[in-house]
């Protein structure tokens, strides 16, 4: 396993932010962590990047305990925070070169990462002149400098335009293809369905669902059909009910159906059903 969380509990005083969370992230997997505000996603990430010790439970990364063996864990991962943290007075390239100096990677890798996130043309500009999307792409470039085996991303595509969002998703899939394990938190349902191999849904610090997006779709899709009949009336048929299936079949046979549409999987509704909380 790349990352293993066993009964992870994190408390802030009396408040339990993460309550007995157990997860296993496989090598070369793109894992999505979903949950409403206060679900414990950020706290889990804070534990994984060593900024918060677990109150109880164990966390290991590639076999190294995150508390006892932190110096070995640190070089293994890259982290893209939810808020950008660049040196505003430096250029994009200068920012990456500084971190490249710390990681001991050559300047050629800086150019490679800038090219990967399509920032090579803007690399000579000061970061204070960057758009939010450019700043986020620079964060991703920085996290990839040392070719980490695990990548944690907090809302990686927030504030990105459609093209940049696609670029980031492409990069993430590419990394996963190369064997990198990616853990991301996001609010973008389409993104989860599009790129995540597995998804965990957290609510109030507890794990409420863990599966592939497809399995979640199968489990939580509504087997209902919206029908507009030729007389102009609208009907909804529940395909789980034998009687309603029969009625629908009768309408089809009589050619009384003007329009028929199956209901698509709605992650928002599935999420609402699982957590009792609207996704925001």
């Amino acid at each position: 396993m790349s990352v293993r969380l066993e009964c992870l509990t994190v408390r802030y005083g009396d408040f339990t932010a993460v309550d007995g969370l157990s997860l296993e992230l496989r090598p070369g997997e793109l894992f999505g962590l979903l949950g409403p505000n206060g679900a414990g996603k950020s706290t889990t990430l804070r534990v994984l990047i060593g900024q918060r010790p677990p109150s109880s439970g164990q966390v290991s990364v590639l076999g190294h305990d995150i508390v006892g063996d932190w110096s070995r864990v640190k070089p293994l991962f890259g982290y893209v925070p939810d808020r950008e943290n660049h040196f505003e007075e430096f250029t994009g390239r200068h920012n990456l070169r500084f971190f490249a100096g710390l990681y001991g990677v050559p300047d050629a890798r800086v150019e490679e990462c800038l090219h990967l996130v399509e920032l090579d043309e803007a690399a000579g500009l000061h970061v204070r002149g960057y758009s939010l999307g450019m700043r986020r792409k620079l964060l991703l470039a920085r996290a990839l400098l040392h070719r980490p085996r695990i990548l944690y991303l907090d809302e990686p595509t927030a504030n990105l335009d459609i093209h940049s969002g696609k670029v980031v998703r492409r990069i993430l899939r590419q990394l996963v293809g190369e064997g990198c394990t990616v853990l991301l938190t996001t609010h973008n349902m389409e993104e989860v369905e599009e790129i995540c191999d597995r998804v965990a849904i957290l609510c109030k610090g507890r794990l409420v669902a863990l599966d592939t997006p497809l399995a979640l779709r199968q489990t939580h899709s509504e087997r209902k059909v919206d029908v507009i009949l030729r007389d102009g009336s609208r009907r909804v048929f529940d395909l789980e009910q034998d009687r309603e299936r029969g009625v629908l079949a009768g309408h089809v046979e009589r050619d009384a159906v003007a329009s028929l549409q199956t209901r698509e999987f709605n992650f928002h509704e599935a999420f609402l059903k699982l957590t009792g909380t609207a996704f925001d």
């Binding site: 900024q51 640190k74 982290y79 925070p81 943290n85 660049h86 971190f99 001991g104 920085r142």
Partner: peptide
């Protein structure tokens, strides 16, 4: 305040 110290702390430094 800007999180740059955290970014440096997560590097090998």
């Amino acid at each position: 305040e800007r999180g740059i110290l955290l970014a440096q702390a997560l590097s090998p430094a």
